[in-house]
Amino acid sequence: MPLGELVTLRAMGPADADALWRWNHDPEVMRWMDDTYPHSVEQVRKWQAERPRNAYGDLLLGIEALADGTLIGLVMLQDAEPEKGIAKLDIYLGEKSYWGKGYATDAMRTICRYGFEDMRLHKVTLTVVTENHAARRVYEKVGFVEEGRLRQVFRRDGKWYDMFTMGLLASELR
């Protein structure tokens, strides 16, 4: 299991469905996330139970606080191909009491280190809504740089927002 200073990353399963359902139904947590139509907790449990096991191209890990073992969020590396050495990263912390305390930064460093060292990735990419300043600060702290801008691709509260594409090369991880 990838281990950071504040967090450990571990496989997720059906037992995590309640937390996942709660986070996905919290408007503050989902503010800058792509969300889907509402699902019942039973549907989330079924999705977790039937989800294929983690693999190189599709890795979903829970973020657990080392101090107390609480599941506080999740992180994903997707669309990785060994021939290209690039993966797309998604992350969020669902437990708001852990926001602003360094957990997201540590989780980012931990998953990127895992991707570069264990998966032999060369680059990790992500997209972030331009107005999501807290997330952008976290990404920049670990070394991500802005590589481009996608115009008006995210809609929230009747308004269209741009998104930044950001990338991190293995040599840039801080």
Rank of each mutant, 00 (worst) to 15 (best):
P2E: 04
L3P: 09
G4Q: 00
G4P: 04
E5L: 06
E5D: 11
L6I: 03
T8S: 12
T8W: 07
L9D: 03
A11T: 10
A11G: 15
G13A: 08
G13W: 09
P14G: 00
D18N: 07
A19C: 13
A19K: 15
W21G: 02
W21D: 02
R22I: 05
D26R: 01
E28Y: 11
T36F: 08
Y37V: 14
Y37S: 09
P38E: 04
S40T: 14
V41P: 07
V41W: 01
V41C: 10
E42C: 06
E42L: 11
Q43E: 15
V44W: 01
V44N: 06
V44S: 04
R45M: 09
W47D: 11
W47N: 08
W47I: 13
W47F: 12
R53H: 12
R53S: 14
Y56R: 08
D58E: 13
D58K: 10
I63V: 13
A65G: 00
T70Y: 07
G73D: 02
G73N: 02
M76W: 06
L77S: 01
Q78A: 14
Q78N: 13
D79R: 11
E81G: 13
E81Q: 15
G85F: 08
I86A: 05
A87T: 01
K88F: 15
K88T: 15
K88S: 13
I91W: 00
E95K: 06
S97N: 12
G100R: 11
G100N: 14
A107Y: 07
T110V: 06
T110H: 03
Y114T: 00
Y114S: 05
E117D: 13
H122P: 07
H122Q: 14
V124E: 00
V124D: 01
T125M: 15
T125A: 12
T125Y: 08
V128D: 02
K141A: 12
K141Q: 15
K141Y: 11
K141W: 08
G143P: 05
V145A: 14
L150H: 15
L150M: 14
V153E: 09
F154K: 03
R155C: 12
R155H: 14
R155N: 12
F164V: 10
F164C: 03
T165V: 05
G167L: 04
L169T: 06
R174C: 09
